[in-house]
Each structure stands twice: as C-alpha cells, then as structure tokens.
Amino acid sequence: MSSRPVTLADVARHAGVSASTVSYALSGKRPILDETRGRVERAVRELGYHPNTSARALAGKRSHMVALVVPLNTDVYVPTMTEIAISVTVTARQHGYNILLMTNDEGPEEVRRIAAGGLADGVILMDIRVGDERIPALRAQGIPTVLIGWPDDPAGLSCVDHDFPTMGALCADHLADLGHRDIAFVGYARAVYERHAGYAVRTLHGFRERAERRGLRFVHRPCEGTYESTAGTVARILADRPDTTGFVVQNEGAIGPLLDLLRASGRTVPEDASVIAICPESLAEQYTPRLTAVTGPKRELGQVAFEQIMARITAATEGAQPEDELRLLVPDLVIRESTAPAPGRGARP
C-alpha cells in the first residue's frame, strides 16, 4: 500500500467534488451547501487527511490573480476570443479571483516575468501553437498553467480545447453523405498556417484525413478573408476544379463573400453548391440561406479552463502533484439550409 500522504486532490476525488470546493469547505472562505460540506468532511475522516500547514501558509500569500494570455493577431475572430475571455473572467470572480490580461505578443520573456515575480498564482494560455515556445518557459518556472489549446506534448499540463480534428471530420462526412465528391476547403490566411496555429492546423488535418477515407477529391485554399482575397480564391477553385459542389469554410471573414460570389457565378446555394462553415451559431444564423455549421461551446471552454487552473493552484498550495486534465469539448453539427444533396445525386443512406 502506498505511504504517500493524503492530498486535497484525493479528498476531492473521494467526495466527488472539485479541489477548489474542498478548499472552500475546509477554509470557510465561501458558502458551501451543507450536503456538499458533509461529503467533504466524511472524505476527510475516511481518508485521514491532514492539511499541510506549510501549504496553508503559502496559500496565504496568494495574489488571487490569474494571468490570461489572449491573442491579438489580426487573423483571429475577435468575438470568439472575447467570449472565451469573458467566460474565464466571470468564472474567476465566482472563485474570488481577478484576471490579469496579457497579450501573446509579449512572448516567453513576459510570461517568465509574471511567473517569477509572483504577479499571478497561475497562467492560462490561449492560441496555442504547434511547438509553442511559451510552454517550456512556464514549465521551467513551475507555475500552475492551463492551456486553451492542444500542444505537441501536454505532459505536466492541463489542457482544454474544442475538438478541432472532429470538426473537420464532421464537415467531410456531412458533404460525403450528401453525395458531394469534389470539395473545397476555404481556410484562414496563409500566415495562420505558417505560425502553426493549432485550431487551423488540427481542423485541416481532421478534414483531410476523413476526406481521404471517404474518397473525396478536395483542395485546400488559404484565404485572407477580405472580399478581394475571397474572390481570387473562389475564382481559382472554380477554374481548377469546375466540378466542385461542396465548400467547407473555416474563416469567418470569407463566409459572406463566398456566398455572394457563388451567386454571382450562377450557382445557387444549396441547389448547385453546398456550404458548411466552422463558426459560431450566431454567425451561421445571420446569412441567407442560414448556414449548416459545426461549432463548439465557447463559454464552457472558459469555465473548464478556470476550474482546471484552480485545481492546479490548490494542489500547488498543498504541496501535491497536480493531476493533468486533458479535455476536448465535443462539437455540434447543426444542419440548416445551406447544404443539400449534390446536383444529380441523392444523399447517401
């Protein structure tokens, strides 16, 4: 039998609550339901838990701030990032924390400064890139860290993200099921792929893998998202692949221009060309026809990220090894009026 001391995380698992709830139940710093407090107290007795006094002293030195590093790249869709940041902030206030807002332009040196200077008890990073250079800097400092995104190596981290590969796969499957065989994927600007933004790279990978499995003929075209760049992208697609009847769009700026350009080319949506977007539901509902879309729960993303950072902060104050929690949030495919069976084909059963 293991001789390691019982930790607050052990109590949380035994009681079926979060580590932060156990901390509040024991400290009395926040009101807890009597039933929940009773479960925590029973778990404490049954496991023989004894709070770590040195950790409690460390807890008294908390800044009660969490640094949230948000992207300010011109190629990101600001409303989505804003909604995630608001969700993190609201959840933080519920835990008695404030948010220190940073931008990813400040890079590894700035996150090192935050970690070393005690300005924040933990860091939440957004816009994770493949081979993100900020992650080793935070690992070296040992500060509790949570990623909204998925790195190459998640060991020693907690991560939450939309399941972008599944988003891409859902788009390929939906169009294949409708009988489409020639598909165009209109993506973000080339610079997004060159900086290895995880949300773009992983979506394209999921789409490509599923499209190949379903025997689809497809082409990926990066797009700046302006009307002019979308016009050039669509013109090249239709010149090179005139039989294209299905369009997947992962670029919020390109959606409206694409619909206009298809109409201008004499293609009616969805009778002649089907369009499926990876975008927020609110955006999908704005267009005519309303867009079939794949989307993920942005508010839940922020809530889960902050719960994860609280668990890691609590473990650190207890002198315990935090558990790595890796979560991918399941996307939804909502079928609306912009997709239909391919011309001359029925939907596959």
Rank of each mutant, 00 (worst) to 15 (best):
I143E: 10
I255K: 00
R134G: 04
D152Q: 04
L328M: 15
I309H: 08
I183K: 01
A176V: 01
G48T: 11
V186D: 00
R134M: 04
A172Q: 04
D182Q: 07
T91I: 10
T74D: 15
R210K: 14
E209W: 12
V44S: 05
D132S: 08
A116M: 05
N251T: 05
H14A: 11
D105Q: 09
V219I: 06
P322Q: 05
A172V: 05
L125Y: 03
E228L: 07
R93V: 05
V294L: 07
L328S: 15
Q94P: 00
T226V: 13
I124F: 02
L58P: 00
R62Y: 10
H196Y: 11
D173T: 09
T245P: 10
A140C: 08
H162G: 11
I276M: 00
E110D: 11
T268I: 12
I99E: 05
G232I: 01
D163P: 03
K298L: 08
R208K: 15
S274F: 13
G96D: 01
F247K: 01
A57W: 09
S265Q: 11
M102P: 00
M310A: 07
T314N: 06
T166R: 14
A342Q: 08
L101Q: 09
S282I: 09
T288I: 10
V294C: 08
A176L: 02
V17Y: 02
E252Y: 04
V160H: 09
S63T: 15
E41N: 05
E281P: 05
L138I: 11
Y97T: 00
P79V: 07
V6T: 14
A9L: 03
V22R: 04
P242D: 08
R129F: 03
P297W: 03
S158P: 14
P79Y: 07
A277I: 06
D75C: 07
V44I: 10
L101W: 06
I183R: 02
V201F: 03
A176G: 08
A264L: 14
H14R: 11
Q308M: 12
D182I: 02
E323L: 09
V334R: 10
P242Y: 06
V88Y: 01
I124T: 02
A320L: 07
P51G: 07
V275R: 02
L238E: 13
S274C: 11
C279I: 03
Y193C: 09
A19P: 09
G131K: 10
L301Q: 05
L125T: 01
R312E: 04
I335A: 13
I276G: 01
P341R: 06
H64E: 11
G232E: 13
I313R: 03
A347D: 08
E46R: 10
L33H: 14
G346A: 15
D240T: 08
K29F: 01
A264R: 15
A305F: 02
H196N: 14
A57N: 11
R30E: 13
